[in-house]
């Protein structure tokens, strides 16, 4: 179910994103195109995190690891001159599914603070693994010799084509998320967030559903990684660094957790803030850090929550 305001926000957001290439070409600032792509890729990552964190209540502090794994598979394939996307992409998604299954199976045995710390530690393990992989660039990362090749279908080397591919994939992910959260599966995930003991008592073996959600989110984040590798023509361990996972959490919370539009709006606002603040001062995190604290203390529910509150009279059920 999408609330009316949320739908409106989404329509406006996607309309704006759709015309970015046009604006970039008339203003002759190709940077806008770059910015738009980055926003949408991170929006996919944030959407996937929201699936487990916002709807499932699983606070993963290592979600960027799947972005990194997706990207690394593309980079490693390209390094071995396997450039066809028809093999690269499924391989990358599969790798993310496998890792998400293993990491999920380990971390979902725990709850609360433990869960946060374990997802963080497992992701950091992969970060250090990336750093120590000298064969694939180690600390410095791995340049992508050429983008994924979908010959005859689409040329990812063309920056506009890549832009619209990402655009379509973001829409696809949004659609998938919408179906998922409203399906029987989605009800189970949300029920487990709300009251896990109750779920057990009415007969749901919760673990397997949570693990499945974890894998789905991991694969979706992997897609963001695939796109990120093609966007930057570069793969490095920093993509998996725990601060990247922190960024994803910030995006979800900034936009509004547990809503479909929230993570997308959050990713956009995050990138815009980053650009705007770093334009003001080199030490922009000096402002951004306290800003986050203020958001936590005073603006619960994020931007979408703010919008909903202002329009809350339209759907009162009390």
């Amino acid at each position: 179910m999408l609330r009316r305001r949320e739908t409106l926000v989404l329509i406006v957001t996607f309309a704006l994103l759709a015309i970015v290439p046009y604006i970039a070409s008339i203003t002759e600032v190709p940077f806008y195109l770059d910015l738009g792509r980055r926003m949408m890729i991170l929006a996919i990552g944030a959407l996937s995190l929201n699936l487990i964190m916002g709807y499932g209540g699983m606070i993963s502090f290592g979600h960027a690891v799947f972005v990194g794994i997706g990207a690394y598979v593309i980079g490693i394939c390209a390094e071995h001159e396997l450039v066809t996307g028809f093999i690269q992409w499924p391989l990358a998604l599969l790798a993310c599914a496998v890792f998400a299954f293993i990491f999920g199976a380990i971390s979902l045995r725990t709850r609360g603070v433990y869960f946060i710390m374990i997802t963080l530690a497992l992701a950091q393990m992969m970060y250090f693994l990336g750093v120590s992989l000298d064969r694939y660039g180690g600390d410095d990362g791995l340049p992508l010799a050429e983008p994924s090749d979908f010959s005859g279908l689409i040329d990812l080397g063309d920056k506009n084509s890549l832009y619209y591919l990402i655009f379509v994939l973001l829409l696809l992910c949004l659609w998938i998320c919408k179906r998922l959260v409203n399906s029987r599966f989605g009800m189970v995930i949300q029920g487990a967030r709300s009251n896990e003991t109750r779920m057990q008592a009415i007969g749901f073996p919760v673990f397997r559903y949570q693990l499945t959600a974890f894998v789905i989110a991991g694969v979706m984040a992997g897609l963001a990684g695939i796109l990120l590798a093609n966007h930057t023509d570069f793969v490095n361990p920093d993509m998996m660094h725990w601060t990247r996972s922190g960024d994803l959490i910030i995006m979800v919370l900034l936009g509004g957790m547990g809503s479909l539009a929230g993570p997308i709006v959050g990713a956009l606002v995050f990138i815009l803030l980053e650009e705007a603040l770093s334009g003001v001062t080199e030490y922009w995190q000096l402002i951004f850090g306290p800003f986050l604290i203020l958001v936590v203390l005073f603006a619960r529910g994020g931007l979408l929550g703010f919008l909903e509150k202002r329009g809350s009279s339209e759907e009162d059920d009390g």
């Binding site: 179906r179 409203n182 399906s183 029987r184 009800m187 779920m199 007969g203």
Partner: peptide
């Protein structure tokens, strides 16, 4: 949700519950 718990598995991802 309680009914759903006793109506087979819930690995049904697409149809609106």
């Amino acid at each position: 949700l309680a009914v759903q718990a006793h109506d087979g598995h819930s690995f049904r991802f697409w149809r609106a519950a």
